[in-house]
Design a protein around this nucleic acid. Structure first.
Lengths: 161, 161
DNA sequence: GGAAATTAGTTTCTAATGAAACTAATTCGG
DNA sequence: CCGAATTAGTTTCATTAGAAACTAATTTCC
């Protein structure tokens, strides 16, 4: 009765994509992210990567683009472009570092901070709606599971690819 | 001590993207999918959408493109293109339905089936490597959590967007 | 039976993506 | 110090994704 979880069975001629962890995760994640993406786009004209940069700066304050890359696991091209758009829109400002002029410190402007404090509760509300019918205990299960996966995926990331 | 899981706290001036469920899920999911995508691409010259179509047909046998869309939550454009490439590569064949000539039945060719049976164990092995250090109990936690999320996300999907 | 609506699937067009090359500033090694 | 290597960040370019329009076949409904 060892159920062979997450691994499913090797195909004689029936193997089920729908039971395959990476696939299931991507469907779930895309569905949820898509829902939020709609919120950001419709209401604020903001793409997901931009929102992430806002969220990071809103959460942790001033930092460089490289710091953002490190914290978000976004790639630097995406960060660079998001920053450009956000600056354009007046949501953040760049201050070139005096000591090392390759680097620039990013921080939210007044406008950017307003955006941040406006979005966060709405995003929370979306998640709350999603989890409306999920019990407190099940939420803990989710939280725990994601933590486990983060750790596992982390080791994967550093062990090359 | 109610810990307010997954919801975190509303920003006075500290709200943490890194604790935000959609974000965490997308990082985890992208890391894992990225790893597999590399396998498909390097070894078989196959993109993720193509692989999904192969996996579905390999798992469930003959079906139409619409059926594939329904089972995978991929969009129809992506399915259409994947099918075209797979046909080109000789991995699947299309048989137009006699009764309804808009529809075509897709199934793996010999080659396609060989591809499928070759990939599946390798994909499984990757997942096994990922979960190497994860206990049986934690695997069950993951499985349960993803199931809960699937259900929650499912209700989200049908309640418009 | 035939115009209008629906469905299956494809094509087109634009925007997003990411790898790789590039620029500019800094550090390292001798 | 000064040339080579490194680092921060940007730009270019080719691919990919996805929305919307489109084609073709089939239903619906009067």
């Amino acid at each position: 009765m060892t159920e062979n979880l997450l691994e499913v069975r090797v195909p004689k001629d029936g193997w089920d994509l729908a039971g395959f962890l990476p696939y299931r995760l991507s469907v779930v994640s895309n569905t949820i992210s898509g829902d939020l993406a709609r919120l950001y786009a419709e209401r604020y004209g903001l793409g997901v990567p931009e929102w992430r940069v806002v969220a990071i700066l809103g959460s942790f304050g001033r930092m460089t683009a490289s710091d953002v890359v490190e914290r978000t696991a976004m790639d630097k091209v995406q960060v660079s472009r998001s920053v450009a758009r956000l600056k354009e829109a007046g949501h953040l400002e760049r201050v070139v570092d005096a000591a090392d002029r390759r680097r620039a410190h990013l921080s939210l402007t007044e406008r950017g901070r307003a955006l941040f404090t406006d979005i966060v509760p709405r995003a929370e509300a979306r998640i709350e709606r999603l989890l409306r019918s999920v019990s407190e205990e099940d939420r803990r299960t989710i939280d725990r599971a994601v933590g486990i996966l983060e750790q596992a995926a982390g080791s994967l990331a550093q062990a090359d690819g």
